[in-house]
């Protein structure tokens, strides 16, 4: 093209610098780090509550878990020659959530072991982010629970204030007899338990953030919490002496943490809305069964892990009817 003589000032695109790719050529701008760091932000209220109630020990556990998860992930990436992945933020979330599943007095080596279990056993052995069938945090939690039942079920007594030095132990409200727990304590977080099981309000704020940014499907927490509420509610009506009120059930233990932050993990939960509803329902039923009749006081972890295993089946069963699809019964080959 010899056309620059008449119009020398016109700048034309350099064809050699044009990128070719398949359509579409624009993007919504959403990416994995954005999603992951929004989740981290949603976890912050609960982290702050944990620090308020359990003091510096909480910071120690949370930091230790987060750092060990990130370090172990990068170590693994080096080992298997993958490019670094810490920037995607998924290891950070795993770390924080792992910390929230431990209690303030957890020894340092248990935190690191938990990080190892979560990252290596829970995620990387399956191929890394996106390929793990089970929630890595819960793999670690259950692994630790089975390996060190005493450490995992001894909870610090919460005490408002940062400078707590002497740890006292307390039982999880679910382990107490009905009537011994005050509802206001449960809401604010003045109860024994793991770091992430204290303040219901902080967890709810986080949940609202996740829902507002459409990072989780509302079907999962709704079905999860709703089914627990209904089942424990019926049980409470039948036998008020042995069963807590459904409100206590909802706001204590790891239920809120599980329903908003762990059952909703995208990788390990169904992709369709209908599937999410079934998934949440299944989690709720199993949790209730374990809580009411099982030997563990808490069943959220087991419930979610069990439903994680069913996720591929749920996904397969809830495939949407394609647009314009006519059932083969009418003589149409689909």
């Amino acid at each position: 093209m010899s056309d620059t003589e008449n119009t020398p000032t016109i700048q034309m695109p350099d064809p050699a610098k044009l990128i070719v790719s398949n359509s579409p050529h624009i993007h919504s701008g959403q990416n994995i780090p954005k999603i992951m760091f929004t989740v981290v932000a949603a976890l912050m209220p609960a982290c702050i509550a944990a620090v308020l109630f359990f003091g510096l020990a909480a910071i120690e556990v949370l930091l230790l878990c987060t750092v060990s998860c990130v370090v172990i992930e990068e170590g693994w990436n080096k080992l298997v020659k993958r490019h670094p992945t810490w920037k995607d933020g998924s290891a950070i979330i795993t770390g924080i959530l792992l910390g929230m599943n431990l209690n303030a007095g957890t020894p340092w080596w248990v935190c690191i072991l938990g990080g190892f279990l979560a990252i290596i056993l829970g995620k990387q052995l399956y191929g890394g982010l996106g390929y793990n069938p089970f929630n890595p945090v819960l793999v670690a939690r259950v692994g630790l629970l089975i390996g060190f039942p005493e450490i995992m079920t001894t909870w610090d007594k919460p005490e408002l204030g940062l400078m707590k030095i002497d740890a006292m132990t307390a039982a999880t409200p679910l382990g107490l007899a009905p009537g011994e727990t005050f509802f206001s304590d449960v809401l604010l977080g003045n109860i024994g338990g793991c770091l992430g099981e204290t303040s219901a309000i902080a967890l709810l704020i986080g949940g609202v953030i996740l829902l507002a940014f459409k990072l989780i499907k509302w079907e999962v927490p709704l079905a999860f919490l709703g089914s627990v509420f209904v089942i424990t509610g019926i049980a409470h009506v039948v036998s008020p002496e042995t069963v807590h009120s459904p409100f206590i059930h909802i706001f204590t233990g790891g239920l809120l943490l599980g329903a908003f932050f762990m059952a909703t993990d995208m990788v390990t939960s169904p992709m369709t809305r209908k599937g999410a509803l079934i998934f949440g329902l299944g989690c709720g039923v199993i949790t209730s069964v374990i809580r009411l009749w099982g030997s563990y006081p808490e069943g959220v972890s087991f419930a979610i892990l069990f439903m994680n295993a069913l996720t591929p089946l749920i996904d397969r069963a809830t495939i949407k009817k394609p647009f314009g699809y006519i059932a083969p019964a009418k003589g149409e080959a689909a």
Partner: peptide
């Protein structure tokens, strides 16, 4: 504003 494709794994977000 151009989209840039990578071979990152699917995180099954369902979007």
């Amino acid at each position: 504003e151009v989209s840039f494709y990578t071979s990152e794994p699917c995180i099954r977000c369902g979007r």
